[in-house]
C-alpha cells in the first residue's frame, strides 16, 4: 500500500513541514515499511510482528534497539494520526489513494511531470483526449481516468508535445504506471 505523509515536525503548530512517501506491506510475520523523505533516499525497515505488538490498544514496539509503548489514534477527518510515545507526540497526516486523489484534484489534476503523465492510483482509462504530436498547454486535459468510482481529468503540468500514448480506453492501469510520455516543445 502506498501513502504519502506529512509529519508535523514542530509539534502541533500547524506547520506541516516534513513530507514523506511511504510504501507499506504486511506479510505473515512482518511489516515492511519503506520511507522516503522528500528529496532523500528510500529507507526500508522490516519489522517482525514479534517486535510490533498490540497490548491493550497500545503499540509495544521494539525498533532499532529501542523499546516504545505507543498510543496511536486517528483524529479529525480520519487522515490525521496522533502518535504519543516517551512524552513526545506528533501528528502524522496520511494521504491514501483517496486522499491523494482529492489533493491532486485540488491542484488542478497536474499529476504528470514535464516528461510524462502517470497514474497516481490504480484505475481505468475512459478516454484519451490528445494525439501524438499535439502541443499541449499547461493544465490542458490529456485523458480521463476512472478511479475510486470517479472520472478524473488528468491534465498536463507544463507546455509539452505528446510523444507517445501508452494506454487506450478500457485499459486498467496500476498506481505509478506511465500513461503518456511528453517531449519538450522546441
Amino acid at each position: 500500500m502506498f501513502f504519502e505523509a506529512d509529519l508535523a515536525g514542530d509539534l502541533m503548530r500547524d506547520k506541516w513541514s516534513e513530507h514523506y512517501k511511504i510504501d507499506i506491506n504486511e506479510t505473515r510475520n512482518a511489516w515492511n515499511v519503506s520511507l522516503q523523505q522528500e528529496g532523500g533516499e528510500w529507507v526500508r525497515y522490516e519489522i517482525s510482528k514479534q517486535d510490533y505488538k498490540m497490548v491493550e490498544n497500545l503499540v509495544n514496539l521494539i525498533w532499532e534497539g529501542g523499546s516504545y509503548l505507543i498510543d496511536v489514534y486517528g483524529t479529525g477527518s480520519g487522515i490525521d494520526y496522533t502518535v504519543y510515545t516517551r512524552s513526545s507526540f506528533r501528528t502524522v497526516r496520511i494521504y491514501n489513494d483517496e486522499a491523494l486523489l482529492h489533493e491532486s484534484l485540488k491542484k488542478g489534476g497536474q499529476m504528470g511531470s514535464s516528461d510524462n503523465l502517470s497514474a497516481g492510483m490504480p484505475g481505468k482509462i475512459v478516454k484519451t483526449l490528445v494525439k501524438v504530436g499535439d502541443v499541449l498547454k499547461p493544465n490542458q486535459p490529456v485523458l480521463i481516468m476512472e478511479a475510486m468510482k470517479m472520472e478524473n481529468e488528468m491534465r498536463a503540468a507544463a507546455e509539452v508535445r505528446v510523444k507517445e500514448i501508452l494506454v487506450k480506453p478500457g485499459d486498467s492501469v496500476e498506481s505509478g504506471q506511465t500513461l503518456v510520455t511528453f517531449e519538450p516543445v522546441k
Binding site: A5, G9, I24, W31, L35, Y81, V83, I94, N96
Partner: peptide, 12 residues
C-alpha cells in the same frame, strides 16, 4: 521521526 511515521503508517 521514523517511529511516528511507521506507527501511523501501520495504523492507516
Amino acid at each position: 521521526d521514523h517511529v511516528f511515521l511507521i506507527t501511523a503508517a501501520i495504523a492507516a
